[in-house]
């Protein structure tokens, strides 16, 4: 049977993609960020850790979905998805190759499990989907595994509640486990962490909130999932609401997880960046060494 073996969280900001494209990923500003991701990249390429399929949870940033259609939870069921032109030409990265059999299986299972999914075939994917792939896999000619794009609306209010996202993750887990083929499946939650991109309060960063969020996500996601939207907005900035998507990833890993690696960095452009590598406790491998890395301005007393 298929199994969700791993959860990864990642930032998906366009500036990371731009740093790769312009060859500045090793400069003074971006170097520490890419260095912080390196252990995840080494891990995933090594020791049998490469997934067969990633269910990649992200939000579409007014790209495939405009004001015409605003699906709360959707799933891409096509054979492939091309990178979108978001105003500066498409990102020069490989097409995302889907897994229609598993995607349709998950879609059907979720609907039977009371999550009334929106199903997409013809859909372009934006930086929300492709930047995490670049951060974890680097710049290969083809992505090394299949990817099921799973867009969540966090742009037009109201987005789904944390509790709903957490429950959805649990349903994704059950759906994957009822797929007959033997597949190593990852669920990735992307976006965040604290950031605000608009208005006089733009530039907000809340390290305390973020570190607490990471801790609760690992150890007490149930309580975390009950946090109301207003708290995300006040504490983590208007765009920090993307963090509800991390709860989908967490819900898909079951009750207890082991944190193999945590990376936290301030700032990546307008944002605080968090990248986590988690596995269900019963099948977890050894944590990486070092297990926790903070860099940039986040270096001050953190633990």
């Amino acid at each position: 049977m298929a199994r969700v073996t791993t959860g990864i969280t990642s930032s998906h900001i366009p500036a990371l993609g731009a740093a790769l494209q312009t060859g500045t990923s090793q400069n003074e500003y971006w170097g520490p960020v890419f260095k912080g991701y390196q252990p995840i990249m080494d891990w995933i390429y090594g020791d049998d850790n490469m997934p067969d399929v990633i269910v990649l949870v992200y939000n579409d940033h007014a790209t495939a979905f405009d004001m015409n259609v605003i699906p709360t939870f959707s799933i891409g069921c096509a054979e492939k998805f091309e990178p979108a032109d978001e105003g500066w030409g498409p990102r020069p990265v490989p097409d995302v190759i889907g897994h229609p059999d598993l995607a349709w299986h998950i879609a059907q299972s979720l609907i039977l499990d009371d999550f009334d999914m929106c199903i997409f075939n013809d859909m372009k994917v934006d930086h929300g989907c492709t930047v995490p792939l670049s951060m974890i896999f680097g710049e290969p000619d083809e992505w090394p595994c299949k990817v099921i794009p799973f867009p969540v609306n966090v742009v037009t209010y109201p987005p789904p509640s944390g509790a709903r996202c957490f429950a959805l993750g649990d349903s994704i887990k059950a759906a994957v486990e009822s797929f007959p083929e033997d597949l190593n499946v990852h669920v990735w939650g992307t976006g965040g962490m604290s950031h605000q991109l608009q208005g006089p309060r733009a530039g907000l960063i809340n390290k305390e909130f973020d570190l607490n969020f990471i801790d609760k996500l690992i150890n007490d996601p149930e309580t975390l999932s009950k946090m109301p939207h207003i708290e995300y907005l006040r504490e983590s900035g208007s765009e920090g609401i993307e963090l509800v998507m991390w709860l989908i990833m967490r819900g898909a890993l079951g009750d207890k997880v082991k944190d193999l690696y945590t990376f936290y960095h301030i700032p990546a452009s307008n944002t605080a960046l968090g990248a986590l590598l988690l596995q269900p406790e019963d099948i977890a491998k050894e944590p990486l060494d070092p297990r926790v890395v903070h860099s940039g301005h986040s270096l001050e007393p953190a633990e």
Partner: peptide, 21 residues
């Protein structure tokens, strides 16, 4: 909305940071 408006500042060759700032 800033994600929609990002198409405008991207077309102008501006970054998210510049627009937000």
């Amino acid at each position: 909305n800033v994600y929609f408006l990002s198409k405008l500042f991207s077309a102008d060759g501006q970054s998210f940071q510049k627009a937000a700032g």
